[in-house]
Simulated scan of single mutants.
Amino acid sequence: MKVMISGGGTGGHIYPALALINEIKKKEPKASFLYVGTETGLEKSIVEKAGIPFTSINITGFKRKLSLDNVKTIMRFVTGVHKSKQLIKDFKPDVVIGTGGYVCGPVVYAAAKLNVPTIIHEQNSVPGLTNKFLSRYVSKIAICFSEAGSYFPSNKVVFTGNPRATEVVQNQKIDKSTLGLDPTKKTVLIVGGSRGARPINDACIRALPDFKKQNYEVLYITGEIHYDKVREEISKAGNPSNVMVKPFVHNMPDILKNIDLIVARAGATTLAEITALGVPSILIPSPYVTNNHQEKNARSLVQNGAAKLIIESELTNETLVNEINEIILNPIQWKKMRDNTLSLGIPDAAEKLYQLIKQLEK
């Protein structure tokens, strides 16, 4: 099997692609891959580090306001389609898959025009512009939230879930103490994304006196740019023994398997991971994403009793601590949320997406 994959811009588009590649490798060790991204995007370093053959095209996203930059984008799209067609003719893929981001546009469009089987994978409950555009041309559309199906032609939609969930579930659990966590205490993970989130950090700093009184521990991932300031504030608060601070973690799946509650943004990959593992959550959606899709993602979990929602503008240290305590200190509430979270998880998502590829391959 020869697979061409394109996805970029954010980790939420890249990591599901890599998870799918890993699943295909397990099924078909002789399969070959070509990842198409942009030279300046996050995908280049991540994909090359994973040892996947990588090539790039030059493309930018559309501005939502009238702008001369959109004329340049159209020209880059046309050029990108031309280059993508040449890449496809040279690589001869059995299937071309887009996992999100504007780089997928010319790649998947070119494949469809060359009659190569195509799939787009939509991780969010509300699709972006690129996937809405591509939905008219692709063979199949894989979704992770049932709400996303209403935006696409129903005859093309297949509910697969996010392959990142499979990868997290299959990860072998590591003993809690080896991660620096206390096996005798419940653990709350607070994370604002790879770069952190200032409002979450500010609320956590103000909550330190309350955290210090609790019998649970807090693992607090600040993001690199916020770490020094937060470390200084924690020192002023007397370095509470039950609060551990890190700028970033590379082994998030290991951490997720050893926590009892997560406070986080509502990115699609994060939600795929926590539902697969059954981790109750307090979600603080980023208000700065397209179409406010993080809040819509979060409400999907909230409606099913799997998460609590705090709108960023309403976030304070009091609301944060109160919501944490209501869950972590109430075993009945915690178990109910855990069961509801697990009911939404799709641990075999990678297998479902692989089977969809095999159907098109035939």
Rank of each mutant, 00 (worst) to 15 (best):
A19L: 05
I259Q: 06
S286L: 14
I21V: 15
T60K: 15
E28N: 14
I327D: 07
P16C: 01
E39K: 13
K25Y: 08
Q172H: 08
Q355P: 00
N201I: 07
T275C: 03
L356A: 00
K2S: 07
I52H: 06
S154A: 15
S343T: 01
L20F: 15
T38S: 14
K132Y: 03
L301K: 12
Y227Q: 04
K229W: 11
K358S: 09
V108K: 10
K26Y: 04
D254F: 11
F211Q: 01
S84Y: 09
G101P: 10
K63M: 12
T10L: 10
M75E: 13
K213Q: 13
E295T: 10
S146Y: 11
R164S: 10
M4G: 06
L114G: 01
L18H: 02
T79F: 13
F62D: 04
V191Q: 06
D182P: 09
V230E: 02
S194I: 05
I97C: 08
R338L: 00
A349Y: 01
G80P: 12
Y109D: 07
E28A: 09
S45V: 11
I205D: 02
Y137S: 13
N155Q: 15
V96Y: 07
N239E: 11
D228F: 04
T184E: 13
E326L: 09
N239M: 10
H82P: 00
P53I: 13
P253I: 03
D348Y: 01
P247M: 05
V279D: 03
V158R: 12
L344T: 01
K26D: 06
K140W: 02
S139T: 09
S135Q: 05
V96D: 07
G11I: 03
M1E: 06
G37I: 04
G223M: 06
E314S: 14
L181Q: 04
P240N: 05
S32H: 10
I200W: 09
M75S: 14
D202I: 12
L18D: 05
C104W: 08
K140S: 02
E323K: 12
K63P: 02
V107M: 08
T60D: 12
K246Q: 13
K156C: 02
T73N: 11
S56E: 11
V158E: 11
K26L: 14
L360F: 09
V126M: 11
L20S: 01
V78Y: 14
L66S: 09
L181P: 11
G61K: 12
K173T: 05
I221S: 08
V36W: 06
K186L: 14
E318V: 14
M1K: 05
D339K: 07
K72V: 08
K49C: 00
S241Y: 01
F62R: 12
Y216A: 07
K156S: 02
N292G: 11
V116S: 13
K352H: 14
L360N: 06
A268F: 05
I174Q: 12
R265S: 04
Y227M: 05
N70P: 09
P287Y: 04
A350P: 00
L329G: 02
K352W: 00
L134N: 08
Y102C: 07
I274W: 03
N258R: 03
P247Y: 01
I311Q: 12
I332P: 00
M337G: 01
G180P: 09
A165Q: 06
E224Q: 15
